[in-house]
Amino acid sequence: MTRTHCRLFSFAGRFSLLTLALMASPFAMADTPFWYGGANIGQSQATIDDARIASGLLANGLTAGPINDIHRDLGFKLYGGYQFNKNFAVEGGYFDLGQFGFNTSTIPLGTLSGNIRLKGVNLDAVGILPITDKFSAFGRLGVTHMQTNDTFVGTGAVNVLNPNPSSRDTNLKVGLGLQYALAPALMLRGEIERYRIDDAVGNKGDVDLVSVGLVYRFGAPTPTPVTRAYTAEPVVLAQAPAPAVAVPVEAALPPPVPLPPPIPLPVKVSFSADSLFDFDNAAVKPAGRLELDKLATDLRGVDFDVINVTGHTDRIGSHAYNQKLSTRRAEAVNTYLVQSGGIPAHKISAKGVNGSDPVTKPGDCLGNKATPALITCLQPDRRVDIDVSGKL
């Protein structure tokens, strides 16, 4: 009976090693880093080298018939990570690429089948490129520690020398993906990854995983109370019951209720940026809209000359990034007050001033590194000021 060697698996690549153009050096910002976790599921695919299988059989005096391949399976991964800033994160997890295999008949009469199972753990560096406030692209480069388990079965003229080879090996992986924020704490992710593998019988190859999944952000920001610099609540006067005596009609009428006094000008209102906007975002969220609606209602009937909206960030991060973020947030408040609050567009203006006008005093918050303690200490500096000036 002829003996057949088991070096039968090889996975040919379908695309070259990707250059991760999205990978960027860490970029400090004025928002809080966070932990996250997620899960993806999708289709894994490998290319089985039928020519190598036929060549191996022929070297042992056997001719292979048609070779039937199983080169697709269900793959999944579970992962967690830490995002340091808007451009960089580190991610690790567990993956299972599924099982692949083949079967064929031989002359002289016999059969041969083989299967390979691939699973392991990984650690990746992830570079992130924000495209809009909610949509971003990302690339990853990482290492895997993979367990490979093979099973070979021969009948008739085929005698398998080692039916259950296995290996553990460390290899590279790369990937590209897109991510969309469904909510402040929930993101939808789709990606394609290439895993370099060792097939346990001396060959190297690649397996691709195309998957979709959900990512949950731990400690997502929640609305914080808005700091207001004035009170303009309606005045409600209690009325005494009318006496039960006959009086002239004119005397029975209650005195008119005086209107609330007009808002004294000038007025300055300061809103916490954390209450108006989500993480690294310039879109006014629902809680912030309620506060801006209240301000617009209070200003109705007030003869003001101009409203100046000024966005502020803290001092963490680069000047260019903070200037852009503070300007976008000021313009978002400006637009909302015009479109939803009825403020005349020619009477309102917006600008961003980076972190050049802090509320905190020098020495209040020590350090320059974006630690959670420093970010919390500098929270009062992240704000939007609205100045209303004019005459009564």
Rank of each mutant, 00 (worst) to 15 (best):
D198H: 07
I348F: 07
G42E: 01
D133Q: 10
P261A: 15
K86Q: 15
G42L: 00
R52I: 05
A238W: 01
G80W: 03
G175H: 04
V384C: 04
Q45H: 10
R168F: 08
M23I: 11
D293P: 02
L123A: 14
F277A: 10
S16D: 13
F11R: 05
F304W: 07
V143M: 12
L378E: 11
P254C: 13
F279C: 07
L366W: 09
P163K: 11
P255S: 15
G114Y: 00
K294Q: 15
N115R: 13
K285V: 12
S275E: 11
D278V: 03
I263D: 12
L178N: 06
S55W: 00
P234S: 04
P241K: 14
H346G: 06
L20H: 08
Q379V: 06
H71T: 07
P223M: 04
Y336V: 08
S113C: 02
I67H: 09
I343T: 09
D293S: 07
L18H: 07
E250K: 09
L22H: 06
F11T: 08
L172D: 03
P372D: 13
G311M: 10
A246N: 08
A283S: 12
G81H: 07
T104C: 13
T224A: 15
T144K: 03
T2C: 04
A232N: 15
S275P: 04
L209E: 01
L17T: 14
R315V: 10
T47A: 10
L178Y: 05
I116S: 13
P262G: 14
L374S: 12
N103E: 11
V153Q: 13
L109K: 11
N308G: 08
L74Y: 04
L209G: 05
I375Q: 15
G56W: 01
M29E: 15
R189Y: 01
P234W: 01
V236Y: 11
V235M: 13
P66R: 02
L290A: 14
E191N: 03
Y79Q: 11
L176S: 05
D387H: 10
A220F: 02
A125V: 05
A345M: 01
D206P: 00
K204Y: 12
M1T: 11
A30F: 08
T148K: 11
V245Y: 07
E191Q: 04
D298F: 03
T231Q: 13
D198P: 00
A183D: 09
P286A: 11
L392N: 14
T106P: 08
G175A: 05
L182M: 12
D133K: 06
S44N: 07
N171C: 01
S211Q: 03
K324V: 11
Y195K: 00
I53F: 03
G75F: 01
L22D: 09
N162Q: 14
A46C: 11
H312T: 05
G142V: 00
F279K: 13
S16L: 06
D49I: 02
L178P: 06
N308Y: 01
D298A: 12
D199G: 09
H319P: 00
V245N: 09
T327N: 06
Q179Y: 00
A350Y: 05
L392Q: 15
G110N: 06
G367S: 07
L161V: 14
A330P: 09
N308A: 12
P262M: 12
P286V: 00
L22Y: 06
L58E: 14
G65R: 00
L109E: 14
D387T: 15
T47F: 02
P264M: 09
V121Q: 09
